[in-house]
Structure formats: structure tokens, C-alpha cells
Design a protein around this nucleic acid. Structure first.
Lengths: 195, 195
DNA sequence: ATAATATGCGAATACATGTTCACATGAGGT
DNA sequence: ACCTCATGTGAACATGTATTCGCATATTAT
């Protein structure tokens, strides 16, 4: 087996772990499963991570920085508020459907209850995410694209709820669930709700 | 130890299991934990249930019939559509905050992936639930209480998403999270969205 | 080239978990 | 009162899981 630096191995292990969560859920995120997915021995995983808690934290960091950061980029663009919201909504649904491990991990009660520090970290990131979307909505109201009288923060939470329930129905239902089509319908109705 | 009939023991075991899930999550739903919570031996649990899968199914049935049925009762009442929606929303938030085991179980990826039959059953029940709420919204549109142009089904999903994200933020955050207050704010904004 | 160090792995360990079994005991029908 | 059967339990078992340890080997610096 070719040797690689810890930096590279850490990324491989995190990606393998996310793949396992996506396919079999957080419950199946065992060291053995990660090792098999990553194509290395179980003992080797301990060369690069202190233990399972350490791996949980690394997954949380990855999701927090790589994923949640995207919204900030879109928010900083020069398009109109409604367009920004649509882009964020679409790319979010797209990402979650391609990397099911991400929502599984974030919504896992196992993580919430046994990895409190990871949960707190994610809670803060999600809070920032809500703020970002609320800011776009506030701008939309000011520019007249979005109806007056709406509360930006609560409207942002409503939008996130749409994403969450879509992912949930996709996860719980059969594999043939058309998540993209479902999301489109919800978005169309959201336009009607806010304009 | 006093002996009781299987019928009554089954209920005790299910309630104990729901309590365990509410306090420590689905991951911690072990036979040992249920036995301790219910105050009986592990072996005795096997007197009344075939095994863990059987217990999962029983929990799913309980949640499906006892809980989801409430919405149908409210929907059948004689109040105005918006009032019905508010009652459903409030009682739902109230129930989930008092019995955290219910959302933990329903949203558990462990259940979704390893208990497919339970997941399918819940999916059908949730589908009925969506239909019920969509029916109320359709009536609201017809009576002029709710804005025209909205799609009942998608608006119903949006309402459910509000509930789901509220429970999620409550679960992931600190124990001091004010779920009732948060839900009230969301409801107030929902009124603005649909009317 | 060689020493030093980081990387890799099979095997062993300690513990948790689902399940079964042989045996005890209490409740209800006769 | 007694018999029968459902209910209850401690102990044992097989398997799964996280983690550690001694040893091998590739990479890097000198």
C-alpha cells in the first residue's frame, strides 16, 4: 500500500465517512465501515484521527466550512434578491441530493445528543446561514421585489423548512422520489407566497 | 414483581421506548435501556415482542395512529380554515415539545434505512397528513381567507417545513431554546405569507 | 547509504448489544 | 385446593465495535 501524508489521508477518511453516512446512515458509521470504504485498515485510521469523536468533529467542520460557505458567496453577488434566493435554494437541494450524507449528519439525533460540541458548532453555522438569507430577503423587501410586512428572519426559516421537509420526504420515501421536481414546485409556490 | 397481561406490558414497553428516544436518541434505544426505563428485565421484553424490529414497528404504529389522527379530528371541526391551521400548528408544536421522542423517531435516519417497512408506513401517514392540511388550505382559498394563486399542497408542505425546522433548531441548540415563542413568530409570519 | 521518522497493518482486548434458554412463580379456570 | 399456562428472570452466548500494541515498511533528511 502506498503511503500518503496525514493531510491527504484525513481528507480521504472524511470523504469515506460521508459516503458511509450517505449510503447507510450515521448509525452505520463504524470504524470498520470507514476503513473499508477508504480502502485502508482500521488501525490506520487511528494514525490520523484520535478516535471517533475526532472524526465526528472533522465531518462537522467540513460541512460547516465547505458547504455553508457557498451561501455567503451567492449572497455577495450582484443579482437581484429573488434570483439569489432561487440560486441558493436550487444549489442547496442539488448538493444535498448528491451528498445525502450531509443532511443525514446534520439532522442526526445521534450527533445532536452525543457530540454536543459538534452540534453547537453546526447550530452557530446554521444561525449565520439564516442571517444571510434574512439579509437577502430584507433587501428584496426594500427593493420592492418582496411583499412588505413580512419578517425577514421568519421568512428565511420558512425557506429553510421547505428545504428540510423536501430532503426528509426524499429520505423516508422510496428511491424513486423526484426531489428536484418536488423542490421546483415548492419554489414556484414560495414565489407566490412572498410576492 | 407483579405480573401483568401482554397487552398492558406492550404499552408500557412502547412508552418506555419513546421516553428513551426522547431523552437519549434512537441510537440509545437498546433493549437494556428500554428494560431499565420500564423497570423490568431484558428477557421479559422478549416475552412481549419478537425482537427489536417488532418494537420499532410498534412505535411506528403508535405514532402513526395516536398522533397523526389528531389532525383529522381538528380538520373535521366547524371552525374557519385559518383557525384550524393554527390549532393544528400549535397542538403539533406542543405535542412534539412534550414528547421529543416522536420527532426523533420519525426523523431518524436509522429508522429510514434499517426499518424500511416502518419508514414506508410513516411515509403514507405523513402523506395523508399533507392531504388533510392541503384540504383545509383549499377551503380557505375558496372562502377567501387565503390568497388566491397559492397551491394548497405546496403551501401545506411549507407549513410542515416550518414545524420541522423549529423542532430541529430546538433539538440541535441549547436546552434554553424557546420553542413555543419561536413557533409563534413563525405562525405570525405565515399569516402574512398566505393572506 | 543510512538513520530517523512517519505511515501502515494484523492481532488482541475490553465492552456493548441482541437474543436464547432453563428454570421460577404467580394468576385464573376447574 | 390444584393444575395449567402465561409471565418473569439471571445467566450464557455470539456478534459487533472502539481502541491499543507490537512490528513492518516506505519516505525523508542528513
Amino acid at each position: 500500500m502506498q503511503k500518503k501524508s496525514t493531510r491527504v489521508r484525513k481528507e480521504e477518511i472524511i470523504q469515506a465517512a460521508l459516503a458511509v453516512v450517505g449510503e447507510k446512515g450515521v448509525r452505520a458509521l463504524t470504524i470498520a465501515a470507514i476503513a473499508e470504504q477508504a480502502g485502508m485498515s482500521e488501525a490506520n485510521i487511528y494514525r490520523h484521527f484520535g478516535g471517533k469523536d475526532d472524526i465526528y468533529a472533522a465531518i462537522g467542520n467540513f460541512i460547516g466550512s465547505e458547504v455553508m460557505g457557498k451561501a455567503a458567496t451567492i449572497a455577495g453577488g450582484s443579482r437581484r434578491p429573488i434570483e439569489k434566493l432561487e440560486t441558493i435554494f436550487r444549489s442547496h437541494i442539488s448538493l444535498l441530493s448528491e451528498q445525502p450524507g450531509i443532511p443525514r449528519f446534520v439532522f442526526s439525533d445521534d450527533v445532536h445528543l452525543t457530540q454536543r460540541n459538534v452540534a453547537e458548532f453546526l447550530a452557530v453555522r446554521i444561525g449565520n446561514y439564516v442571517d444571510t438569507i434574512a439579509g437577502i430577503i430584507a433587501a428584496g423587501i426594500e427593493e420592492g421585489e418582496i411583499r412588505q410586512g413580512l419578517v425577514p428572519r421568519e421568512t428565511a426559516l420558512t425557506l429553510l423548512g421547505m428545504i428540510q421537509i423536501t430532503v426528509f420526504r426524499w429520505t423516508i420515501g422510496t428511491a424513486s422520489f423526484d426531489i428536484k421536481g418536488d423542490a421546483e414546485k415548492l419554489w414556484g409556490n414560495f414565489i407566490g407566497l412572498v410576492s
